[in-house]
């Protein structure tokens, strides 16, 4: 018997700056996550792919310098890392930059 998991969802992740360089290309990824996943779960999934991203590690701090937006709204004004994601959501991860 084949079991098809139908309750997975797809979330688009837009990475910026140093993170975009690490993921390469356009820096846009589509992740398949279990239903009811949170921003924290998404970050964990990304860290699984790129272990050397200090930007993702920084997000664990309550006063992180990295901005995370879900559908254009910053998660500080939602439920932080516990913000629940839905199918089709777009998550932007924006590290601070220093070039000049």
């Amino acid at each position: 018997m084949i079991i098809v998991l139908e309750n997975d969802m797809k979330v688009t992740v837009k990475t910026f700056a140093t993170l975009r360089e690490l993921f390469g290309g356009t820096g846009v990824l589509v992740l398949q996550l279990p239903e009811n996943s949170s921003v924290r779960d998404l970050i964990d999934a990304l860290r699984h792919r790129i272990t050397r991203a200090s930007v993702l590690k920084d997000l664990e701090n309550p006063n992180s310098s990295v901005k995370v937006l879900v559908n254009g709204r910053e998660i500080t004004y939602l439920k932080g890392l516990e913000t629940e994601l839905r199918d089709g959501d777009v998550v932007a991860i924006i590290p601070p930059v220093a070039g000049g």
Binding site: N61, N63, S64, S65, P96, A98, G99
Partner: peptide
């Protein structure tokens, strides 16, 4: 207030001139 924690300093920043 915007950047509460010290980020890693970049060694060399890539950029296309139109952006600066």
């Amino acid at each position: 207030c915007l950047i509460p924690r010290d980020p890693e300093e970049p060694s060399k920043v890539p950029t296309i001139g139109s952006l600066p």
